[in-house]
């Protein structure tokens, strides 16, 4: 049998040897060289990605570490005063009273609606104010409301007066804004937002408004640290 095989091989070795070489090469290419090369290319790409990610994370860590925690907390407190996560009726009443009394008006009634409505991406609840005071100062109240440290929109204005009297009765329908805290505070890879000049300007404006209305300098209700 062995002799027969050797005889067969000797007779057809010109064809059998190249066939064996071709098949072996093909086997190596298909099962070793090609997959390993593909893995090598993919590995190279993922290494580059990892290096880039590492650089980005380092930059992010540096940026986060450079932030002043106290300053950030103060800014967050300011913006949460302006747009709290809850309705916060107590502070709203105190603020409205301040905004109305400051220019010389008196508040005869305040009605709060418990229902919520959407204003843009925020929620709001309705407040109806009935006021009495000099008509000439109504513009100041409206200006105060538009520049209030808590976001308030004027929905409707009703002014009535008796003939010859300087004082007017005013009914203001207001929308007081609030917004739930965002559900997502960013993933590890999410880019860090930067505070623009406009943002810093807004914070300064909120600070200066807060200084002019000291009674509203309370911290917002709810959790002291919303991330806990």
């Amino acid at each position: 049998m062995k002799k027969e095989i050797i005889k067969f091989y000797s007779k057809y070795r010109l064809y059998i040897f190249p066939a064996i070489v071709s098949l072996s090469s093909l086997f190596l290419i298909v099962f070793a060289i090609y997959p390993q090369t593909m893995k090598l290319i993919a590995g190279q790409k993922s290494t580059e990605k990892l290096i880039n990610r590492s650089k980005l994370l380092d930059i992010k860590v540096a940026a986060l570490e450079n932030l002043n925690d106290k300053d950030l907390s103060r800014k967050v407190e300011l913006v949460l005063n302006a747009l709290p996560p809850e309705k916060d009726f107590g502070n709203t009443f105190a603020l409205l009273q301040q905004l109305v009394i400051q220019p010389g008006f008196s508040m005869t009634s305040i009605t709060v609606s418990n229902s919520s409505a959407k204003v843009g991406n925020s929620d709001s609840f309705d407040v109806k104010l009935e006021l009495k005071g000099p008509r000439i100062l109504l513009s100041t109240i409206l200006n105060n409301l538009d520049n209030s440290p808590r976001l308030i929109r004027v929905k409707s204005i009703d002014v009535s007066s008796n003939q010859g009297q300087q004082n007017v009765d005013v009914a203001l329908a207001l929308q007081v804004l609030y917004a739930a805290l965002p559900q997502n505070y960013g993933m590890i890879d999410s880019p860090l937002p930067e505070l623009s000049q406009n943002d810093e300007g807004l914070i300064s404006t909120l600070e200066s408004i807060k200084r002019t209305i000291p009674a509203t300098a309370e911290s917002p209700r709810g959790k002291s640290n919303p991330f806990e």
Partner: peptide, 30 residues
């Protein structure tokens, strides 16, 4: 470890976006 700082910053930016739309912008009725 700095997740809460990131959260504060995200919250600040998110709130400022809304505040920018309304603060100092007079209501149309006014």
């Amino acid at each position: 470890d700095l997740k809460s700082t990131q959260g504060y910053l995200m919250l600040l930016k998110d709130r400022l976006k809304v505040i920018d739309q309304y603060l100092g912008v007079s209501s149309k009725q006014s």
